[in-house]
Design a binder for these strands. Sequence first.
DNA 1: AAGTGTTTATCTCCGA
DNA 2: TCGGAGATAAACACTT
Length: 436
Amino acid sequence: MPRPTRESYGDQKPPYSYISLTAMAIWNSPEKMCTLADIYKFITDGFPYYRKNTQRWQNSLRHNLSFNDCFIKIPRRPDRPGKGAYWTLHPSAMNMFENGSFLRRRKRFKITKPEKDALEAGLQQLNGGPINCMETNRCPGETLLSSPVPSTALPTSHTKIAFNVETLAASDAKSPKPRVSLPSISPGQFQIGLSPNLFSPPSLQHRPILYSPSEIYPTPTSVGFYSSLYPPPPLPPPQFHHVQSYLPSPPTSLHHLYAAAMAATMSPSLAPSIPLRPTALHMPPITLASLSALGSPFSGVPFRPQAILSRPCYPGMPPNSAAARFLSANSPPHSPPANLASLASLMSAHTRAQELDEDEQILIDDYEEEDAGQKMVSDMVSKLRASIEYGDEVDKRRLNKTITPPLSDVADITEPESRPAKGEVLASTSPTARSV
DNA sequence: AAGTGTTTATCTCCGA
DNA sequence: TCGGAGATAAACACTT
């Protein structure tokens, strides 16, 4: 079965904004920072639509980089000449996108004036300039600058921190641990390795806020900061078959799966640490948005109930009158959005899905409560880590196994979701997008 | 010269 | 109707 890729949009304009495309490019880079040229390349490689009229969209993209606070410019090292600076995402920027989907953006990302000042002052340091402002109030989701001082001696609000590329490189080379313990994961929460929420200590206040990309996005590999100065070859699209071997059964949500795919593509060692959303464990994977965009030629694939309700609009969906009847009485008419790129993995997952193991179904049932769900997540992650660490082939096979609950079992556990965003509606109805 | 970055302006779309 | 978000155009300055 063909796997949809970004190329699937063909010459049709993808449903992503320039901000989303840029964020994707940055996210897709190993060090979570890249040059303007890298961003151009990522977009033109992935989206044929952008191989023409380059002047137009590149101008727009540059405008967006400058205009939006979610993008942070990091100067080059003086001894590494080249055109343009590096661009990275503000540590809170991933929160812009609902449920981690680049198709949907909550609201415009704005940082406060003091934060902006502090950031600019810190970035000035990269060029050897003076520190003008090194303190401000922290906002939720921010991370702290990597500094040469021990973490036990974090500076007070009046302490100046040496901040330069060497510092960043040194901190990264030592594979710094996050300064804070990871918060527990709540059911329904979408978190992947680079979620800024993962590293935001709510108790720390009045710290200097400057951003080290290597700390915002801790790299599990030993790839150093400097590697980003030598642009790596373009990453392949997420390797979904690769991810399958990482994901404990049963399948995760679309968003999680895509995140896992991206993470595994970027760094296999990151993937096992991706927490799974307990409620998503029960969810049939296919949503209306993904289904319509793909032309829905997949019979036998479990669909979210809402998608089935919309069958008249999207011919090809497998009928399920029981679910439709249930939903006509109980559910909103809209299906939650999907991340198209993740759909392929679910397709392949389904083809590999075996009958649901009875013991595992009981386990799932037992874990429906939030606390239990978290325990399940941690258990699965531990199990997966152990499996990978010891190379236990039996466990690996078991963890590979995907579980696809029948529709009749899931109609009453649909998560509350919002309406599809405009871009998704467009994508869903696009004839090109359907012809995958 | 070409690429990069900033700023301003205008327009459309959409949701409140 | 209004405001926010996004797309686009354009002018300009700076860097390589």
